[in-house]
């Protein structure tokens, strides 16, 4: 029998609201606002209030999938990345670098987002960079 709250930062946008994940016996069951946090001051938006919902959701992807013969199949990260690299390379060659856009995410760290824009500009050669908070 165990109930605690674990404070973390909301994964959904760049505001940085703190929230508490309510955990019963190791299972995340809900969210509470962080009442003494200087950024969110005990409030959350609808996304923050539901930030726990995807963690254990049955639809959540746990492995990369590649469609083979019309069927999605679980594959290794290596195989998935190879396919992405190969296809991005051929699109870039055929249609030019600006035919590719890169969408980053507020769910990533600053450093991960930095890497992705670097990848877009220095590797692919495009300034087409945007992020999920504007979708």
């Amino acid at each position: 029998m165990d109930y605690k709250n674990i404070q973390t930062i909301c994964p959904y946008c760049g505001c940085g609201c703190a929230l508490n994940l309510e955990v019963i016996d190791g299972e995340i069951v809900g969210v509470l606002p962080a009442n003494d946090h200087p950024v969110s001051q005990g409030s959350l938006c609808i996304k923050g209030w539901n930030a726990h919902a995807f963690v254990g959701h049955e639809d959540r992807l746990k492995k990369p999938l590649i469609r083979k013969n019309g069927q999605l199949e679980e594959v290794s990260w290596n195989e998935a990345l190879k396919l992405v690299a190969k296809n991005l390379g051929s699109i870039q060659k055929k249609h030019g670098a600006d035919s590719i856009g890169v969408l980053t995410s507020a769910k990533c760290t600053n450093e991960e987002n930095y890497l992705l824009q670097k990848f877009a500009r220095a590797v692919i050669g495009t300034n087409n960079v945007d992020h999920c908070a504007r979708l």
Binding site: D2, Y3, K4, I6, E22, N35, H37
Partner: peptide, 17 residues
């Protein structure tokens, strides 16, 4: 078996059993 109250940790205070 347990008592619900607020627990303060370095992150802040929140309900705890």
């Amino acid at each position: 078996d347990g008592i619900v109250a607020l627990r303060s940790t370095e992150d802040g205070a929140a309900p705890y059993l």
